[in-house]
Simulated assay, not measured.
Amino acid sequence: MKILLTGASGLLGSAFAQAAKRRGHHVVGITGRYDGPLPGPAERKQLDLADLNALEAFALEQFPDAIVNCAAISEPGDCEKDPAASRLLNVALPEKLALLARHLFATLIHISSEQVFDGTAARYYRDSPPSPPNEYARQKLESEHRVNELAAEFATTLRLPLLMGNSLAGTRSLHERLLLSWSKGQATPLFTDEYRQPCLVDNAAAVMLELCERSDLKGVYHWAGEKCISRYEMGQRIAQHFGLPAEQLVQAAQRGDDPRFAHRQARLDLDITPLASKLKTQAQAFADQLDALIVPKPVRSWYHSQ
């Protein structure tokens, strides 16, 4: 299968490209400014994804069997600062990809986010009413609507949670950012009252591959790890996994103690049963996710000196 992949150098896109290669698929990876090593894609193309005409011409030239959209501006603060710029990637791009999927009769896998929910419910189901609390979440929800309106018979939208994993640069994921802070002598305050359902990117990539290879799972689905845990527990267990003193490096904090964070969702617990019951890939426990994490290159000298 030929797969056109946007965001091929990102945390999730890179994991997907490598998984697809192992399964014998031909991945054409699109990157932005990143020009470093890119394992996985059989071909790569540097392209400004805000240039939708250039993207369309390239996609029509490639004529893929599937399109996988991992590109996004995912930092909520960036979306608040410049919503017009972030909408180009978060809304206009998936809209264009949906049109292309319909034109090419190609499967489309579009990545959305748990952030479309406000965090006030005990659990969120496929049909739970979204209530996006910030600009990033509003854009992701709008992208879901555009994809469904334009390519419902070809598209699967996958809402994903906080992602764990090893990025190409070693600076993108939660454990990489924590280790970078700790290497600078900075203890990290993490919330005891903010719960997420983390998922390893390799596990999410396996799900995405199954969705590419099947034609019977269209619409919106959730995927995540086995259970919700607090940010504080995540930080503690990451430190312990790397043999570091969690009691010195991780500080307990609460969202409500700082008005800057009081708006953050308290709990994002996703029901994944509708998808998990139909796939070979199964959700992972947090301990299994930790086993896949490595010390990133930017902090290896510091880490080995501990």
Rank of each mutant, 00 (worst) to 15 (best):
Q254S: 13
R44H: 08
L168M: 06
S86E: 09
N148M: 15
L168C: 06
L244A: 02
G36V: 04
Y34H: 10
G185A: 03
H145A: 14
E247Q: 11
E213T: 03
G119A: 07
V68H: 10
Q240C: 00
G24Q: 06
C212E: 06
K96T: 15
Y221D: 03
V295R: 05
A206V: 02
Q236L: 13
L190D: 04
V91D: 06
A152D: 11
R87S: 12
P298L: 03
R126S: 10
T281F: 10
G24F: 07
L178H: 01
G40D: 02
S9E: 02
M164W: 09
D48L: 12
F286G: 08
A137V: 07
L104I: 02
T107S: 14
R172V: 07
S305F: 01
V68E: 11
L270H: 09
P37V: 00
E75D: 15
D48K: 12
L244Q: 01
Q46L: 03
A122Q: 13
L108R: 11
D291W: 03
V207D: 11
Q186S: 01
R196E: 03
E75V: 11
A283T: 15
A206L: 15
R126P: 02
A8Y: 08
R267K: 15
S173E: 05
E80C: 01
Y124W: 05
S128A: 13
S215L: 05
V201I: 15
H110K: 07
V27H: 09
L174K: 00
S301V: 01
S277M: 07
A151K: 10
A252Q: 14
L11C: 11
Q265Y: 02
P64M: 08
R214I: 05
A246H: 02
